[in-house]
């Protein structure tokens, strides 16, 4: 599988939280190239199983929804007022090219008042989402014909920008890059004889309520689950313990994480000489692992992450080799699962 090609296709599809149909269709097609056992649920989670359904069953989840915006009001001059869907930072919005998903997709820009027309106090104040507007060129009556309150807006998709050293910059690498990692895992695992069943799930609504993680874990009812999601990569202006080096696979440790499942991942990395970094998270991890953990009487959960810089902007940056390494750590762990899996997960020693 060509990772760059998959990422280019996956990041090009819109899929703001709650409107994941289009990206879901693409993921479904990708899954079908690796397994016939593919299905969807009512809220749009896409699942693909590798191996016969048996115990233990492992659920691997990466979310396919993306942050975006929603129209709250159409002004009489045709400007669209907006609210964020998920954690959009209003400070990075002015100057953005966007697509407004009205009755048909419309190009738009998010403007800003020029600095010439602002006084000192105004230039010092950060933008608030309530103050921003999206310009699609139409006046009020024209805009109202095609655009409605509740319509979605995304950053305009562009092909990934290839920086030096295998660094890749693009919108929505959170978490589409990890959908590509799931595909690579499926490819690896198809070549191995497995003693378990693996369900891959591209989940919906992670960026807001975690709905996809909740209903996904409830319906699959796996014996263990791994959320794969991005974490923060090192960059100027952040503390070292808040971030991880861009070339390391990050495993999370904390109350959201099952220690033995973490150990299985660590063993897999060690066996393959893949350097890892531990991230400590004692509270909510902000991933699907948080919601999956408490379904169905409790599910052992772990998190595998590649570091990513500039999260929730249109220039999210990641290192492609780290993505390959993530796929190896996960596949290696799953490939090593044998009949002693219950013992391996037992916390009582």
């Amino acid at each position: 599988m060509d990772m760059l090609d998959a990422i280019s296709c996956l990041t090009a599809k819109p899929g703001v939280t709650g409107a994941e149909q289009e990206i879901g269709q693409l993921v479904e097609q990708y899954f079908l190239t690796y397994t016939k056992d593919v299905w969807k649920d009512q809220y749009g989670n896409v699942y693909g199983r590798i191996g016969e359904k048996t115990k233990p069953e492992i659920l691997i989840m990466a979310h396919m929804d993306e942050i975006g915006l929603m129209v709250t009001k159409i002004e009489n001059n045709g400007m669209l007022r907006m609210i964020n869907v998920g954690g959009v930072d209003p400070r990075v919005l002015p100057g953005s090219e966007v697509v407004v998903f009205g009755d048909k997709p419309l190009p738009g820009v998010i403007g800003a008042v020029p600095p010439h027309l602002l006084n000192k106090e105004q230039t010092d104040i950060a933008y608030r989402i309530e103050d921003l507007f999206c310009d699609i060129g139409y006046d009020g009556p024209e805009a109202r014909k095609l655009v409605h309150v509740g319509d979605y807006i995304t950053f305009a998709p562009k092909p990934p920008l290839q920086l030096k050293n295998g660094y890749l910059s693009c919108k929505t690498l959170d978490d589409r890059a990890l959908i590509a990692v799931m595909l690579e895992c499926m490819e690896y695992l198809n070549k191995r004889k497995l003693k378990c069943s693996v369900v891959f799930c591209a989940s919906v609504q992670e960026e807001r309520s975690g709905l996809g993680g909740i209903i996904g874990a409830y319906s699959v009812h796996p014996d263990m689950a791994i959320a794969i999601d991005v974490c923060h990569g090192s960059m100027p202006g952040v503390k070292p313990f808040e971030t991880a080096p861009m070339d390391k696979v990050v495993l999370t440790k904390g109350s959201n994480i099952h220690e033995k499942l973490l150990k299985m991942l660590q063993d897999s990395a060690k066996a393959q000489n893949i350097p890892i970094e531990l991230e400590i998270a004692m509270g909510p991890t902000g991933t699907d692992a948080w919601t999956m953990q408490v379904q169905r009487g409790g599910i052992p959960c772990a998190i595998v992450s590649p570091p990513l810089r500039y999260m929730h902007t249109s220039v999210e940056t990641i290192r492609i080799d780290t993505l390959h390494a993530c796929a190896k750590v996960i596949s290696g762990m799953i490939g090593d699962i044998d009949e002693n899996w219950e013992e391996a997960l037992c916390l009582d020693d």
Binding site: Q42, I83, L211, I215, Y218
Partner: peptide
């Protein structure tokens, strides 16, 4: 009818959606 996007506030719909395998 009107279309509503509420900036701040929640409702029971959220809890109902998250029930079982997801309720519409």
């Amino acid at each position: 009818y009107q279309r509503e996007v509420l900036r701040a506030g929640g409702t029971d719909t959220a809890a109902i959606q998250k029930t079982q395998k997801g309720i519409l």
